[in-house]
């Protein structure tokens, strides 16, 4: 029962992007298309789950003073695994996510969960927590990616939606559009959270 709670809290109540305001850089940078959002989401979820598990396994073997460098080393290792695997098996996605794959290392969601959750809880709980947070993050990426792709390029998953003469609102895929859409999304979620209470 409590495991289900651990899982769902990452999606709604403690959504890493909307509520905790973590991991904003990749959220805005890669959410120009749905495919990029999904790719980034899966990559980050993989790193989150693996690093959470490893860190909760080794939590008693880590001296307190140097725990942050050790956590970062663990995270960087999994990020490199993702980076190499993506370059080998999904070269097109790896090309379009570019620099933001290595930057998963400094995605505050991952270090935040390592420090705030995995270093205090057991393996199973940490696994569920990582999965929930990852799904919550991916969800936001997909929502933003869908809005920005439809409005900004007039396509969905690369397929034209409105025919030849549609002039898309380019602004949405440019950097300002990223800022506007995340601002509006957070405001909407604030409104919703208040209603639910």
């Amino acid at each position: 029962m409590s495991l289900i709670k651990e899982f769902t809290k990452g999606i709604i109540k403690e959504n890493p992007v909307l509520v905790l305001a973590l991991g904003l850089c990749p959220t805005l940078a890669v959410s120009t298309t749905i495919v990029n959002g999904i790719g980034m989401g899966i990559a980050a979820t993989f790193v989150l789950v693996c690093s959470n598990m490893v860190i909760s396994l080794i939590k008693n073997l880590v001296p307190n003073r140097i725990r942050i460098p050790i956590f970062i080393t663990v995270i960087a290792t999994f990020v490199t695994i993702v980076k190499l695997a993506m370059a080998a098996y999904f070269p097109a996605l790896s090309k379009s996510l570019g620099i933001f794959i290595p930057l998963i290392v400094v995605n505050c969601i991952i270090l935040g969960r390592a420090e705030g959750f995995a270093s205090k809880h057991g393996v199973l709980k940490s696994f569920i927590d990582g999965l929930g947070m990852g799904v919550g993050f991916t969800m936001i990426l997909v929502i933003l990616g869908t809005c920005r792709e439809i409005l900004g390029s007039g396509t969905i998953l690369g397929h034209p939606l409105f025919g030849e003469h549609f002039k898309p609102a380019l602004l949405m895929i440019l950097p300002p559009g990223g800022f506007f859409s995340i601002g509006i999304l957070i405001a909407l979620s604030n409104l919703l959270q208040k209603r639910l209470e």
């Binding site: 090309k95 900004g152 380019l170 895929i173």
Partner: peptide
């Protein structure tokens, strides 16, 4: 063969 220009532009 390689570019990372603004998406959509």
């Amino acid at each position: 063969v390689y570019q990372e220009e603004t998406p959509g532009l």
